[in-house]
Design a protein around this nucleic acid. Structure first.
Length: 304
DNA sequence: CGTTCATCCTGAGAGC
DNA sequence: TGCTCTCAGGATGAAC
């Protein structure tokens, strides 16, 4: 279940193993992997071939390779991992995975990049790069965020809590203004990106806030603390996940060690709360599940 | 216009 | 053993 930390681990792997190389050919297996690409798989394959990879970038759960294509038009190969996507760097003659959907081969005859996705919620698309409307002046010492621009399909995604362009006061104001369950806003990628069901539950548990509380009923400092907890839990997961992928394997499972040790709420139904010992409860929310401590996270009276 | 909901997909695990 | 059922969930676009 790749959320921001897992996607960042993959991005770092791409930066190390793919950036700087020139693509020779791309093979797309099936229609579905390129369903978000306007021209379909054949067009995607043709237009990616011969392009050099200039950078690996990310916003929230979206990942993209900045390309320097022969026609000099700034484009990016956007890759979303969905629920089960993996990017693997492997020799071309390595056994083919059961759910292999795409391969990229490079001019240097080195290992190829593979997109494997069991449930195919993810996919690839080649799109233009647009100026980042969220980009703002950053302090001395900080590099420009997303200097190459933002791919079209990512334009509506808000900055994530771990990037320079993240505008904490604005996000707090936006959330405070909405009479909507606060967990819904944490998961709304147009408000703040990168947070999925797992880290939303963890952040809410740490903050001692029930996800069904209307955001407008929280104080601005409380919303700020909630966002800080979300950033912190994702940074911790990144710290652990970033250490466990090896040189030839750019793998979203790199962060799996985190799930074994460190989750306090998500998937902990029935187990004692680490703070107060009360059994963690599971309830349905937005056709998903929410996990919370009924004592630390007071349930609001009215349903939202 | 803002919000809610069904939908895509496959494998794991439960229950019978 | 093998069948059916439920669940997991990000993002999108249709419906309300």
């Amino acid at each position: 279940m790749p959320e921001l930390p897992e996607v960042e681990v993959v991005r770092r792997g791409l930066a190390e193993h793919v950036v700087g190389r020139r693509i020779r050919t791309a093979h797309l297996l099936g229609q579905r992997v390129a369903r978000r690409h306007e021209g379909g798989p054949a067009d995607l394959s043709a237009r990616v071939s011969r392009a050099k990879v200039l950078a690996a970038d990310r916003r929230g759960k979206y990942l993209w390779l900045v390309l320097d294509p022969p026609d000099d038009d700034p484009h990016a190969l956007v890759m979303h991992l969905g629920m089960s996507g993996q990017l693997l760097v492997e020799p071309a003659d390595a056994p083919r995975e059961k759910h292999l959907h795409a391969t990229l081969d490079f001019d240097d005859d080195g290992p190829q990049l593979r997109f494997v996705d069991q449930r195919t919620f993810g996919g690839l698309a080649l799109t233009p790069l647009l100026p980042d409307v969220h980009r703002r002046a950053v302090g001395p010492g900080s590099g420009p965020a997303h200097g190459h621009g933002i791919p079209q399909p990512v334009a509506h995604i808000a900055p994530d809590p771990l990037e320079d362009a993240f505008d904490r006061p604005t996000v707090i104001r936006t959330m405070k203004s909405k009479n909507v369950a606060v967990k819904r806003l944490l998961l709304d990628q147009g408000v703040v990106s990168g947070i999925g069901n797992i880290y939303a539950d963890e952040a809410l548990w740490r903050a001692g806030v029930h996800g069904r509380r209307p955001a407008s009923a929280l104080t601005r400092p409380a919303i700020g603390r909630l966002l800080d907890h979300a950033a912190e839990v994702m940074r911790e997961a990144l710290g652990q996940g970033g250490t466990s992928f090896d040189a030839l394997y750019v793998n979203v499972n790199g962060a799996s060690g985190y799930f074994d040790r460190s989750l306090d709420a998500y998937g902990q139904t029935g187990r004692p709360c680490a703070r107060c010992g009360t059994a963690i409860r599971r309830e349905e929310f937005m056709n998903r599940s929410s996990h919370y401590c009924p004592r630390c996270q007071t349930v609001p009276r009215a349903r939202t």
